[in-house]
Design a protein around this nucleic acid. Structure first.
Length: 263
DNA sequence: ATGGCTTCAGAATGAAGA
């Protein structure tokens, strides 16, 4: 079974590229982030023609997550509130559409678009840390349910280690690399999740995002911020995890590349 | 480089992304 994650930076702009990629890479599940479209306007039929079921939580202009699955999902929900309850903070955080989950083949898929955070110390940075704290509670509660085998994937907007950054020097106060962000992510992983990519590849120089500016992709000046985290049984089962930079080479690409785990 | 691209929204000397 293959499960992939891809921040497409607008599903409508990227539709043809995503369809073409799925034809070349017929994964069982594709988790999308930054769809940037309200549910009614999602280009649904193109994916249904390819044999995928679509589950989505979108909004106008920003954010938006979706799951495409060959097998229908069960127990689908979006946002924190179905798990954390409708208390004030979860309700406020759920105004931004960044979370969707569903179950297939005894595996719960959690698809995330973690807030970017703008810059260290900004209001958006505080929001990012607050969001990550609630995410930890959310995942903790889902781990207590069945199935407790989880694939937690998406655009985390965090490079956990220096080997995940092309130039880690002086990034201690940089968004996506600051210690409070890394600590928040480590606290989540301490619930019992492990990075699928690092099971197979230990060296630096592997990235999933490259800035549109300054020829960053051509020069491989990237960051590895898109992740697939697995619970122990799934981690044992994983036989490959790769980043496919092919679509990043196309004209008008997403700034992120898809990441695929094979179980 | 406190913004070099890209997207959306809607009319900006824009906001947001990462």
């Amino acid at each position: 079974m293959k499960i992939a994650t891809w921040n497409v930076n607008s599903i409508r702009i990227r539709l043809e590229q995503v369809i073409n990629w799925l034809q070349e890479n017929p994964v069982d599940v594709l988790c999308l982030q930054e769809t940037k479209v309200v549910d009614i306007d999602f280009p649904k039929s193109a994916f249904e023609s390819l044999g995928y079921h679509l589950y989505q939580s979108g909004q106008k202009a920003y954010n938006g997550v979706a799951i495409l699955s060959r097998i229908p999902l069960t127990e689908v929900s979006s946002g924190f509130t179905p798990v954390l309850g409708t208390e004030d903070e979860a309700l406020i955080l759920d105004q931004q559409k960044r979370v969707i989950t569903g179950v297939m083949a005894g595996i719960r898929i959690i698809n995330l678009y973690v807030p970017n955070g703008a810059s260290v110390g900004s209001e958006k940075y505080v929001y990012k840390l607050q969001w990550l704290k609630r995410l930890r509670e959310y995942i903790g509660l889902l781990l207590q349910k069945q199935p407790a085998e989880l694939v937690v994937c998406g655009d985390f907007n965090i490079a956990l280690e220096d080997r995940d950054i092309h130039d880690p020097e002086g990034k201690a106060n940089h968004i996506m690399a600051s210690e409070p962000e890394r600590e928040a992510l480590r606290a989540i992983l301490n619930l019992g999740l492990t990075d699928a990519f690092r099971k197979f590849t230990a060296d630096a120089g592997h990235f999933s995002w490259w800035d549109y500016r300054a020829g960053s992709f051509r020069r491989n000046l990237g960051w590895r911020i898109d992740h697939l985290y697995l619970t122990p049984e799934l981690y044992k089962r994983a036989i490959a995890c790769t980043i496919d930079s092919t679509p990043r080479k196309l004209p008008k690409p997403s700034d992120h590349a898809p990441v695929i785990v094979e179980l």
